[in-house]
């Protein structure tokens, strides 16, 4: 059914991702496919890493730990954005194409009033991606 499932991750808030990661892992097992972790960072120092290279390294580390604990092929791709608060959705959509993933599983919060003005990332991805999107709330 799917060849590779993309899992956008925010390394700063891994705790909030637990549910989405589990869904991704379960789907990957069900369809016997691999996972691809995608992270977007700023070029300036962040809480997670001092520079994009360090971020990519940490993401890779996270992916290999996950591959070991889950017994699944897990790759990782890190992107650096000029203005991550705004460019995140655009970068993730481009990542889905580049990594040739045919499904996206991502976490999102429950929509509220702000979503009338600023679309949530999950919502934006679901309405623009060319592949299947599973938004986990």
């Amino acid at each position: 059914m799917f060849k590779k499932i993309m899992l956008p991750v925010d390394l700063q808030h891994v705790d909030r991702l637990e549910k989405a990661l589990r869904v991704g892992v379960d789907l990957a097992r069900l369809y016997g496919c691999g996972l691809c972790l995608v992270g977007v960072t700023a070029e300036t120092p962040t809480a997670v890493a001092h520079n994009p290279e360090e971020y990519a390294d940490k993401l890779e580390h996270f992916a290999s730990e996950m591959a070991e604990s889950q017994g699944l092929p897990v790759e990782s791709v890190a992107y650096a954005a000029h203005d991550p608060a705004v460019d995140l959705d655009k970068t993730l959509l481009a990542a889905a194409e580049e990594t040739e993933c045919d499904a996206i599983v991502m976490a999102s919060h429950v929509p509220g009033l702000p979503e009338h003005f600023f679309a949530s990332h999950g919502g934006k991805i679901a309405s623009h991606a060319h592949v299947s999107v599973f938004v986990v709330r």
Partner: peptide
Amino acid sequence: IMTPDGDANPIETDYTVG
């Protein structure tokens, strides 16, 4: 601390952004 692209000389500090 990993260096950015190529060589650089980062400062070691315990402070994390934010």
